[in-house]
Every structure is written in C-alpha cells, then in structure tokens.
Design a protein around this nucleic acid. Sequence first.
DNA 1: ACCTGAACACCGTTCAAGT
DNA 2: ACCTGAACACCGTTCAAGT
Lengths: 234, 234
Amino acid sequence: MRHPHTAGATMSHVEAEKKKRGRPSRIDVDTIVGIARRILQEEGVAALSMRRVAKEVGTTPMALYHHVRDKDELLMLTLSGMAATVPRPELPDDPRERLLTVSVHMHGTLARMPWVVEVLSLGDLTDKGALWMVEEIIASCVACGLTPAQSVAAYRTIWHCVYGDLVFRQAMARRAEEPDRRRHFPDMITEADAEELPHMAALADRWLELTADYDVSTQLGAVIDGLLGQARRP
Amino acid sequence: MRHPHTAGATMSHVEAEKKKRGRPSRIDVDTIVGIARRILQEEGVAALSMRRVAKEVGTTPMALYHHVRDKDELLMLTLSGMAATVPRPELPDDPRERLLTVSVHMHGTLARMPWVVEVLSLGDLTDKGALWMVEEIIASCVACGLTPAQSVAAYRTIWHCVYGDLVFRQAMARRAEEPDRRRHFPDMITEADAEELPHMAALADRWLELTADYDVSTQLGAVIDGLLGQARRP
DNA sequence: ACCTGAACACCGTTCAAGT
DNA sequence: ACCTGAACACCGTTCAAGT
C-alpha cells in the first residue's frame, strides 16, 4: 500500500517509524491535522497557512515538515475521517428513491462542512469513509438497469450537480457578508437589453428570489430521472 | 449604472475621469487587464499577482491601484469581453436540441479557457457578452413548457453540470502533469473492500478508462431530458 | 530522529511623499 | 491626478546547524 494515510487513520510514513527508533517527537500528525481542521472549519482555506498551524501547535513552521510532506499533503490529511463524523442515514429499498436519498445526503453533509468542499476542489477524495455513498449511487444505477459505464458516468454527473450547487451557494454567502460589495448580476441587465434578452429582462426583478428558491432535491430528482432514462435506450 | 466596467468596454471610474483633467496617465486599465489576461492564459490564476502584472506593465505595484480597486476587481475585469472572442454558433430550431447545443457550446468554450473557470468560482459572471447563452437556455426551457421559475432552476443545474465537469477535468489534468504525484483513487480500493464496496471493487481496474470515457454531451442530454420532464408534472 | 533559525523569494496593500 | 518608495504584515519552503 503506497499511501497508508489515505486510510481512516491519519498516520504518515514518518510517524510510523517513530515508535521504533530515534528521539520521541514532541508533536504528532494527529495534533497538526486537528489544529488545521479547526482553522479550516472556523476560517476557511484562505486562513490556513503552515506558519499559522505551527504557531497554534506551539512549534516552528519547519517542525511541521517532519510530519507532512508539504501544505498540500496536510490539506489532504484534513479530509480523512470526516465522513465518519456523520451518521449514515436509513436508505429506502427502491433504487430510484435510494439514489435520490444518498445524493441529497451527500449534499446536506457537505453543506455543513464548507471547507471540505474547498479542499476537495484541490485534489481528489482521500476519505475512504465517504466511498459508501459512491457505491450506493453506482449500485442503485445498476439496479435501475444502467450499464456499469453508464452508472459511473451518472455518479459523476450527480456529483457535479451537488458540487456546483455548493460552490455557488458558498460564493453567494461570501458575497452577502461583504458589506458594500459590487453585485454584478442581475444589476447589469437594464431595460435596454429587453430586446436581446427578453426572458432575462423580464425575470431580472425576481432573479434573487428565484435563486433563493432553487431546491437541490427537486433538481437532483429531475437529473436522476434523466440519467435513469438512459436504461431504456442503451 | 453603478458598475460601468461590467459592460463590454473595460473602463473604470478612474479612467473615465482622466480625459477631463489632471496629468495624463502613462498606463491605462486596458493595458493592465490585457497583461493580466495573458498571464492567466499562460500560467493560470496562481501565477497572477499585482507585483507580477506591475513588472510586466513596466510600473510599480502601487501604480495599478490607481486604475483598479484591488486584485479582485482586476480579476473580474479580465472576464469582460471574453465571450465576444468566440463566434456564436448556429442553433437548431427545436428547443430541446437548442438547449443541448447551447449547453455543449458553453462547455466547449470554457474548456478552451481554463483560467476563466478558475476566475468564475471567485465571483459571478461579469461578462455581458455571455448572457445570450443564459437567455437561450431559459427561453428553450420555457418553450418546452417549463415555468419561468423552473427554467431558471434548470439553467442553474445545467451550469452546475458544465462547471463541475470543467473543474474536475482540470484538476485531473493538473495532477497528470505533476510527475510522481500521489493518486488516491481508485488505488485506495483493495480486495479487502470487495464486501463493503462490491461495485467499486469490481470497477477499480476500469475506473480511469471509464472516467476518460465520460462524455459531457451524453450526460447533458440525459440531464436535459430529466429537467424538461418536469413540464408534464408541474 | 527531531527540531530550530536564518534566509530566500515571494505576496496584497497602506501610507506619506513627490511631480 | 498620477506615480514612487519604503514599510507592514504576511506567505511556502530550503538549507545548515543544533541536540
């Protein structure tokens, strides 16, 4: 196994050696990752720096590099085990319902961990504890008659819908916090655009309201219907 | 109009005044934005810094702040007018076909401008020249019997599918470039997981191949079918 | 083996001063 | 009005040295 720390336990190759020989270390990876995780949770990825983590751990920045390869590895390590902190929901037996329930659960879970979404866009999934959701989605697709290839593709598409919603939901929340921040849309549409952009001009006033009304469950339901519809014409 | 530079022409409030009084400026926003755009295109957002732009423009970092409010505004300005650089495609008359064509065009266009995708995730759309695509998508949805509210939601879902694909396609390309880089998935699935994750274990060997086979057009087609299916049960 | 300190090559932005 | 220089408060990481 080339990457032992991708498993549930956060243990680097360096730490694995420490029990055998040499001076015992004052700090360990779990402490570092724990502190990092707290900073991420409270202030987001932008606030996470090696120097900041070092200060809160109580060492010099360079001491961290004995436990993690670089900042990127630290970021990946923060993801391990996050899925296990969320209880696994009861799933309905009907595969179509199951698919929707898992997808919505995935979205709801990540909506409560905004920093995980930010970190995920930098690398790929490193938390084995999250794979049961991928498995359930693929299994349900197969149960609904999709080929394995179609099922994997369907999983990706569902993930894109979940991820996209989270990203722009967060961007909107961030912009709402900044007090005077320039909003671009739909303020940039004026009466003069009514000819070129009739629907948008007509909807401009209701745009914010309609954006707020966007319901992921409804959308995922429709997307799943479309994806499962592929079964009849392979 | 509060934000004149959100229009096609890149002209800031500062520059708008310059023709009237005071010392003529040695540099103008268009030069700054042009240089920024080139750096973004060639090296991505990570390479863009105010200091770097200043050096390439031939001034001090602080001179830039007379033309743009901050780095964020510069980033937003780089988007203006990008849509106009791509020829508008012929669209089929059938609204369902039209919807698919516009969506795929959106994806294809952005696939050729990776940095635009990176910048878009930081703020919202600032290029009025891109709005015709949103208009066409909404118009087609309405033509297929969706309510305006459903059409706006459908647009967002399509955008999430396009955006999500681009983000992870780029992340994959980045990781492929780094030589020895740790890959996490599906290497982390072993024989031992076959019981918990039967489908994934079975597909592990084909995972990369299946990921490469992912076809956005096919997926968008299925998603659109699902979204338009909402028309019959409102 | 583990940690430290100094150093390198960067950041965005403020502020006071120059022309 | 436009630009400069110095300064502030940061970055990630390398490298040589200490215990």
